[in-house]
Amino acid sequence: MKRATRLAHAGRQPSAHYGMVNTPVYHASTVLFDSLAAFDAASVDPFSGVHYGRLGTPTHFAFEAAIAELEGAHGTVSTCSGLAAIAIAILAVTQAGAHVLVADNVYGPTRKLCDGLLARHGVRCEYFDPLSTPAALAERFTEQTCALFVEAPGSLTFEIADVPALAECAHQHGVTVIADNTWGTPVYFDALGHGVDLSVHAATKYIVGHSDAMLGTVSAVDEARYRAVRETAIALGYCAGPDDVYLGARGLRTLGQRLPVHEANGLALANWLAEQPGVARVFHPARADHPQHDRWLRDFSGACGLFAIELAPISRECLAALIDGLSFYGLGASWGGYESLVLPVDPTHSRSAVAWQADGPLLRIHAGLEDIDDLIDDMAAGLARAGLA
């Protein structure tokens, strides 16, 4: 099947649900068994069949099957948020005394998890330059190193790690590779095909696509890691709500149509911003001036709508004038929905391996599905209000 067909059909079994095109939402906690023998048989393997609402319903299993098919995974586990998926993936392969190598450009809550909960339970997380060569990375491995966590590109500063090369290096040391693939999505980046063992998504974003559900997924390359991930999710009591899972499955059906619009709008907006006198730098992997553009061309089949710009030095008041008067960009911390967003961010305090250096403020932009002319006109007026036109 071609990608568009796969997105439309993956995980659907109408014949199992009275011909319903979409797998229905099963609101369930208790599941009844016809006999003691059936109950005993179900208890042998919690990874198959329907046992209890927290362990999954047909709604969950259909969505997980679709994601697994799209990622080429042995299996997928859905959970209640992207951060929950990150936590499950790391906890599934660590124990007290473990050492985890983490790219320095990861999502802020990932760093808080590493420096807080994981540290308190004896897991040492060490941050490395996401642009490290395999040789430089190899020097950091110890006998306790069990995981390498990357985010390519980073969702604030957009460096693209050499995932295949780093993954090969990690595998030579017997280390599991975990990647946050939310930016690339299963459509634009084949994480498992590039050496990743556990592909994590904040499905809240592009997979759901409408800013109305919290959802995460972890897809495993093999059965052993899949079982470890599911066992960890069950032990923690992390489960996605059936309505959110349904919205994730619904979002998949249009993902292939939405992403090209996000990509086109994002690139057009980034190209326009690069020509504005008040914009010092544009961080967009699909632009030829991005430092890892060749790597993006090699590994990715497209770009989403998320990128960043560095503005010329301005006061906080001028930045507020830019943002507060925007009509078509919301001020919000998420991305991946149909709406455009802006968010001022400061990576200075969330970097430890490589210092972030910039003269002006960093503005992260998510290009939504609005008309590009409206988005450009709105941003042009904002730059003018800030004295950057």
Rank of each mutant, 00 (worst) to 15 (best):
A270C: 04
G108R: 15
V196T: 02
P344M: 11
A135R: 05
T217P: 00
A87N: 09
E64D: 10
H60E: 02
I309R: 11
A228L: 01
P24Q: 14
W272N: 07
P130S: 02
V175Y: 15
Q276K: 11
G387R: 14
E275P: 05
Q257T: 12
F39Y: 14
H60Q: 08
G382F: 10
G325P: 09
P277Q: 01
T59G: 08
C114T: 08
A84F: 00
A240D: 05
A62Y: 02
H194L: 03
A312Y: 12
L7S: 06
A220K: 00
R12I: 10
F61N: 02
D359V: 11
E139A: 08
H210T: 15
I160C: 14
R385S: 11
A220Y: 00
L137E: 10
A224P: 04
V218K: 00
G360P: 05
G332Y: 14
S211M: 03
V354P: 03
Y107R: 05
L113F: 12
T217C: 02
V200Y: 02
A240S: 10
Q95Y: 06
D359N: 03
M1H: 14
Q292V: 07
G251Y: 05
L341R: 12
D34E: 13
N181D: 09
G184F: 06
I376H: 13
V354Q: 09
W335K: 12
I178Y: 02
G82M: 07
V106A: 13
A203S: 08
I372C: 06
D197A: 01
R124T: 15
M379K: 10
F63R: 12
H349V: 14
G174I: 07
G174F: 08
L269C: 09
P285M: 10
L55F: 00
G336P: 07
G302I: 05
G184C: 07
A333Q: 12
D190G: 01
C80N: 03
F158C: 06
G19Q: 15
L192M: 04
